[in-house]
């Protein structure tokens, strides 16, 4: 941590440094004490008894292979819903963003604006229930429907922010060499917008993956539902080990993709394939892509936070 360069406090002198060392020890002690207390409390409740055997020697005549293969089926179903929904959402989102930017007719760009505003302003679960109960779709396709509608709208907003961040000269140059507005958007602006917004797009895919867990509620057989099924079969006392394994799987998968987004953002900053503003500053300031994603996610029309 760059605690030296904080706006909140001065560079520590000798006295502050001594205090720092003391506070470090005190708080480390407090955290260790709390952790120890939790573990002792759990031990007293018998959490570290033979219930963990479900992970290698489960009861009721099942083998460890049965438990683990059911868990991996759950992970695969989670990934399947995300893998089906993500490309469709990106394609729809890009189409809407292109229409909003490049269409000459007001009706087209206006109506796509209304659709995105509505779709990202609603809970994903509502959309999933619409597909399940009104269209009568299977759980998998209900999940995919909810994810696609919502994330397509968010992707459209992200790309819109990316297009808006480009220097105006790019569009003017395209139009002045005789390209139509649509071709200017497609050939000149969109490739650059995708580039600056790639980190935001990837972390939106983490959100999509996280939202597949909503499939639990519309009885899609994903990881959480599998854990529940195992718990109903083996009994409540086996829930804790199963839950911890499942939670670890979710968090590891999501953390990996989040890290990927951060790594790509670093690479993007060093590459030179996006036109910079007239004053030489970058089209998107550091962290700007992420804050644009943030406002795209929550459904109000204004841009991200003001940049430096």
């Amino acid at each position: 941590m760059k605690s030296e360069a904080s706006v909140l406090y001065d560079v520590p002198g000798p006295r502050a440094k001594r205090l720092d060392v003391i506070l470090n020890w005190v708080f480390t002690g407090v955290f260790l004490a709390v952790a120890a207390w939790v573990i002792v409390a759990w031990y007293d409740r018998g959490i570290f008894d033979d219930r963990w055997q479900i992970l290698w020697d489960p009861p009721k005549g099942q083998t460890a292979g049965d438990v683990w293969s059911s868990l991996f089926t759950g992970v695969l179903n989670t990934l399947k819903a995300a893998a089906v929904a993500a490309p469709i959402a990106v394609v729809f989102g890009a189409t809407v963003a292109i229409i909003r930017r490049g269409a000459r007719r007001r009706v087209l760009s206006g109506s796509s604006a209304v659709v995105t505003e509505l779709a990202r302003g609603l809970p994903v679960l509502m959309l999933m229930f619409l597909a399940k109960l009104f269209f009568g779709w299977s759980p998998l396709w209900s999940v995919v429907f909810g994810l696609v509608v919502y994330n397509a709208a968010v992707v459209a907003e992200i790309l819109r922010a990316g297009l808006a961040a480009l220097p105006a000269g790019q569009r003017e140059a395209g139009l002045s060499i005789g390209l139509s507005p649509m071709r200017t958007t497609l050939l000149i602006e969109l490739p650059q917008a995708v580039r600056i917004m790639l980190p935001a797009l990837i972390s939106q895919m983490v959100v999509l993956l996280k939202d597949t867990a909503l499939g639990y509620i519309v009885s899609y057989n994903e990881l959480l539902r599998v854990i529940k099924t195992n718990r109903d079969y083996f009994g409540d006392r086996y829930l804790i080990p199963l839950f911890l394994v499942g939670a670890a799987m979710f968090i590891i998968i999501n953390l990996t993709i989040s890290r990927l987004a951060i790594w790509i953002e670093g690479r993007m900053r060093r590459s030179k394939h996006v036109a910079s503003k007239d004053d030489g500053s970058e089209a998107m300031h550091e962290g700007g892509a992420e804050s644009a994603r943030y406002s795209a996610n929550t459904g109000y029309g204004t841009g991200g936070t003001p940049g430096p």
């Binding site: 996280k210 867990a213 639990y216 839950f243 968090i251 999501n254």
Partner: peptide
């Protein structure tokens, strides 16, 4: 870091099913 990478449904599941058993 941990909370942002955990699905909210998982969080609900914890407080509704797991927490009572601890």
């Amino acid at each position: 870091e941990i909370v942002r990478n955990t699905p909210l449904t998982l969080m609900f599941f914890f407080w509704v099913f797991v927490a009572p058993s601890v």
